[in-house]
């Protein structure tokens, strides 16, 4: 199965880092990607620029609107993602355990859904 691991952290923690600390963290992330690639689990992944660079786009009544900033104000902000190939959720959790910002942030793990022409599962239970 493929799992998308969304990496979140509080950007204030990053802003408080020295250049050396920030570089060291980035080198750790590069090593993490190398390790996951070598073991055949890494499908894709990228780090993102900070949320100040974010633009949110919507289409309403046929009109495209754009607003400054991320989709929602949250305590932790989306910082990057990994697309991982794993046997099951247990393996995905083990792999995610290697992502360096996990020490001060969090990672949301979501199974990837294959789009189908019909009979798509909602992944949600009706009536809730």
């Amino acid at each position: 199965m493929n799992y998308l691991a969304l990496v979140y952290y509080n950007e204030d923690i990053i802003r408080a880092m020295s250049q050396q600390e920030w570089d060291a963290l980035n080198r750790e992330c590069m090593a993490c990607v190398e390790g996951l690639s070598a073991s055949g689990h890494f499908v894709d992944g990228h780090a993102l620029q900070a949320t100040e660079t974010a633009t949110t786009v919507r289409l309403r009544d046929g009109k495209l609107t754009t607003t400054d900033g991320p989709f929602a104000e949250t305590k932790e902000q989306l910082a990057g993602f990994y697309l991982l190939q794993a046997r099951d959720l247990n393996e995905a959790i083990q792999l995610v355990g290697k992502i360096p910002p996990l020490r001060f942030g969090s990672v949301e793990v979501r199974p990837v859904r294959e789009l189908q022409t019909e009979g798509n599962i909602t992944g949600m239970v009706a009536g809730g």
Partner: peptide
Amino acid sequence: AQRIVRAKAKIRDAGIPYEVPETSA
């Protein structure tokens, strides 16, 4: 009943395996 249905759906859709965790975990 709803809670149980949801839990079973998560087990299936998120790929929670039917296993005893390996020693490391």
